[in-house]
């Protein structure tokens, strides 16, 4: 049983990691959900093999399941649930604003990159400015003020 649960956790982790690598936020959210489930399963398994419900009724102590990891997993599930709801709201807001849920690149990073490209051009005046050497770095023609 423990091996089965561990294997399920492994599959959940693998799928979650793969989905996390995607560009679409909806897939990332599902990926995070799967990762969270994997982690919670692992937490439940960490208490060892199952047993009787941990309500003291006179049975020998070894028969009971360890209640602590279950309590921890419950807390973790609630937290994951809340944060996933927030992430969904964020994804919806992004869809409202852009009509898409693609995760975009950092704008400033692209600007630094573009400045570097401009800089490289001005340092080599022998390069024809109309030459489209750096054109793949410039997403749109930018007028220099």
């Amino acid at each position: 049983m423990t091996i089965l649960v561990a294997a399920v956790a492994a599959v959940l982790f693998a799928c979650g990691t793969w989905l996390l690598m995607q560009r679409r936020l909806s897939r990332i959210i599902i990926g995070i959900g799967l990762l969270g489930h994997g982690a919670n399963l692992l937490l439940v398994t960490s208490g060892g093999s199952g047993g009787r419900p941990p309500i003291i009724d006179g049975s020998p102590l070894g028969d009971y399941a360890d209640p602590l990891p279950q309590a921890l997993a419950l807390t973790a599930i609630v937290i994951t649930f809340g944060v996933t709801a927030f992430l969904l709201a964020l994804g919806y807001r992004s869809w409202q604003l852009t009509g898409d849920d693609q995760v975009e690149d950092d704008v400033e990073d692209r600007m630094v990159q573009r400045r570097e490209a401009d800089h490289a051009e001005s340092e080599h005046p022998d390069v024809d400015p109309d030459n489209d050497l750096g054109s793949d770095l410039e997403p749109a023609p930018v007028e220099q003020a």
């Binding site: 936020l25 969270g36 982690a39 692992l42 398994t45 602590l68 990891p69 921890l72 992004s94």
Partner: peptide, 25 residues
Amino acid sequence: RSGMSYVVISLVASTLFITVLALMY
């Protein structure tokens, strides 16, 4: 846009934290 990457990266860290906790327990 930037909130998304912040939330996602923090969530990944939190999931890792639970995993480590499980292994430690």
